[in-house]
Each structure stands twice: as structure tokens, then as C-alpha cells.
Amino acid sequence: MPEARIVWRKTLLNKRTVAMLIAAEKIYHSKFKYLQGSYNKGGVEASAGTHDGGGAVDIGVASQSPAQRRAIVLALRQVGFAAWLRTPAQGRWPYHVHAIAIGDKDLSRGAAAQVLEYKRKRNGLANRGADDGPPGYYSMTWELYLKAHPAPPPPAVPDSSISLGAMAYARTHDAMTGAWGADRARVVAWAAHPKVAAIGRHETVPPAGVPWHLHFQQVLRKVQLKFKLPQTGIFVDGVDDQMKRYGYTITA
């Protein structure tokens, strides 16, 4: 089956290519500037058809230093791209990095040919010159990278359900018993969990003289601060999504 296409950062790509680019950006510790994506048949004559299908991307590096340009090429190669720095001396184009996702199901004929040239340690240009990029990754693919770098599971916390009704009630009431009281206690305990650490253990109960409903709002604000959310003190303003990531089920 063909790759699933998406528009990402105003660039047409496919989901596999986007996942690879995100991983490469993480290695480089900065976002890339995208000049051209995939599925751009006849869009740029100088591309020689390599962007007609999927898996192809051009990254702007005109403002980067030589060391930064090389680091971008290296990061792309490390996650399974056939990638090269293209310079004005090589053709009628600005400094940019040209990359082809090895193993993409939608590669154009020109892109597939460039992958073969890369594996032969060539530069992917018509002159078939020697590869001028960082060596050592000619056999890398995205699947091999994922096998060596599996995504870490979310931090383990108990799987429980949280009622939205209980959360709304907790913002305006102090006394809570039964299942709803247990839900409030779960949220506060989750916020204090060492792998969340939005609040300290001493903050699982309100200070003397502070009503429970005001304390609960403050706990939610600290959770929102932790996850860089608007600090409203309302459970559904992003806190619910974070708890889902940690294995909780949100009910009505």
C-alpha cells in the first residue's frame, strides 16, 4: 500500500517521512527549514524528478555554518535518509540539503536511483562523483533506526478512570466521598507522582486554612504549568489529555 500523505509544516510529505524528520531534528537539537517536500511532480526542474513521489525533502541551510550543514546531513543519514549537502557550485540552486527516505514505498524512479547511488557511496548527481557526506550510514533504514531506538513507554502509573463530573464538582466543593472523592485523590496523587512531579508530596493535602476546592484548583494550575498549558485551574483544559497519556481513562 502507498504511504499516507499529510501536510506538515506547510509541506506535503507522508507520515513515514515526517516521523523520520522529527527523529533527525531531535538528533540535531533544532527544527529544519523545509524548502520542498514530496509529491511535487514537475515542480522543480533541477530536482530531476526526485520529488515526483514520496520520501523526498529539501532543507534550507543557506544561513547555517559548514559545521551545522554537515550536522544536518549526518542527522538525516542516521535515521535512514540518503542525504547530501547541495551547493551553488554543483548546480543552479542555493545551499540546501537534499534527502531521500530509504525504503519509502512511494519513491519516484529518480529518487530510487539516488538511493542506489548513495549505497554505492556516490553523490547522487549526474556526474556520479564520490559521496561527499559523513560516511558510515549507507545501510541504515528507518526501520533499523527504530529497532535500535525504540520509543520509551509512557511513565507507569496506575490505570484508573477519572470522572469529568467529579472534577467539575471538586473545583467548587470541599467535601467529597465515595467514587468522586477517590477520583480527586487519584488526580492529586498522579500530580505528585515522581514521574510527573507537578507538585510535591507535601501538596497532596491543602495547607491549614485553605479550602479543598481552592487547593484542587491550584494543583491543576501546577499540572498545567508543568506541561506548558494555559493555567486555568480547570481539569478539561489539557489536564485530561495528559492523564490519558499516562494510562488513565476519562469518563463522563
Rank of each mutant, 00 (worst) to 15 (best):
A99L: 07
Q218K: 11
V7D: 08
M140Y: 03
M1R: 10
A82C: 00
Q114W: 04
L74W: 09
R16S: 13
P158Q: 09
G103W: 10
D52K: 05
W142D: 04
H193L: 05
A75K: 10
P2L: 08
A24I: 06
L229M: 13
P135Y: 12
R77I: 06
V57F: 04
M140L: 10
V236E: 13
P194S: 09
K244M: 09
R171Y: 01
N40C: 01
E3S: 15
H29P: 00
A175T: 14
W93N: 05
Q68C: 01
R109T: 13
H29V: 08
S63H: 05
Q114T: 12
R70C: 05
E143I: 04
L76S: 05
M243H: 02
R120K: 13
W190T: 11
Y248N: 08
L214N: 04
T232Q: 04
H96P: 02
D58H: 07
T11F: 05
I102P: 01
Q217V: 11
G55K: 01
A197L: 05
S160G: 02
Q217E: 13
S139R: 14
M167L: 10
P94M: 00
W8I: 03
V188E: 02
T17E: 02
A24F: 07
P152T: 10
R92S: 15
F81T: 02
H98Q: 11
I27M: 07
F32W: 09
G200R: 11
D131R: 12
I22N: 07
G91P: 03
